[in-house]
Amino acid sequence: MKTAYVFPGQGAQFVGMGQDLYNSNEDCKALFEQANDILGFRITDLMFSGTDEDLKQTNVTQPAIFLHSVILAIALGDGFKPAMVAGHSLGEFSALVAAGALSFEDGLKLVAQRANAMQKACELQPSTMAAILGLEDEVVENICKQVDDVVVAANYNCPGQLVISGSIAGVDKACALLTEAGAKRALKLNVGGAFHSPLMEPARVELQAAIEATEIKAPICPIYQNVDAKPHTDPAEIKANLIAQLTGAVRWTQTIQHILADGAEAFVEVGPGNVLQGLVKKVDRKVPTSAAQIGG
């Protein structure tokens, strides 16, 4: 069976995440402890017994989800046989490590740098995101173009669900226009800033040098990347797309459509939560989806 493995992004975190992996075997425990050393703080304490507030800090959230996803993929051992992989935003880094394109250490360092760069970009200008439900993608894109402040389509999550991103004024204006245009909901999100928008340009510049200096190898299977939703195995292309990802849109709907068109027969979500399984079902409700489990 041709199985696609998908890796979640920010928002999937929960207190207690990864503790079962830490306790399950010495190899997993060693990786978590290595992560504590690399990061310079005990992220495991925050993951296993912190508060929801702790886990919402970008510099904790992103490495925490990455660690849970990657260590779970490693724990699957021979059970991890992807025909293709993809990750939602941050999850793209998890997918690259799981598919052998990035080392565990390099992946974690890049994720930590990415989180800090995004945090700094958020502090430069107050900005936000909003989920728009019940409109065609094209309608949302056209209305965003009419607004004279920064606002763009940022996350194409599934048909009828698109997240916009930009300045607070830009998002507010777009939400009002989109509601007038018939959106079922225009819901401002509780996020620190305008991810996947031009306002992340300072973070993109900061991360570019780090990504360019990191060794990326050909993955064991194609990775469908966020910026163009297409399969990639060439390390130079993968790097360029990773750099573009911070200011580019997450084309998740198109990614799932392409993976299905390329013959995927099942999807396995690797990491905390089950958000991606739900999004896959919105694209094709008949395709089997499941959560990765050790021994499962």
Rank of each mutant, 00 (worst) to 15 (best):
F7N: 02
I220C: 15
S197R: 05
C28H: 12
A183N: 02
A249D: 01
M17I: 04
Q19C: 08
Q225I: 08
E206D: 14
S167T: 12
L67I: 06
K281V: 03
G107L: 04
T247S: 02
E237W: 00
N157E: 09
G273W: 06
G160E: 12
F195Y: 15
N274H: 13
N226H: 10
A203K: 02
E26D: 15
D37P: 05
G296Y: 07
F66K: 04
N36Y: 13
L133A: 05
M200N: 02
G296P: 07
I238C: 13
A213T: 02
I238Y: 13
A169W: 01
V205H: 11
N116V: 00
A194R: 01
N36A: 14
I164E: 02
D137Y: 15
N59A: 14
D172T: 14
A154D: 02
Q208G: 15
T255P: 06
Q57I: 01
K145N: 02
A117Q: 05
A30V: 01
N226W: 09
Q208R: 12
P222L: 00
K282Y: 08
N116A: 12
P126C: 00
S167H: 02
V70M: 02
I211Y: 09
K145A: 12
E92K: 11
L246H: 06
D148Y: 07
E53C: 02
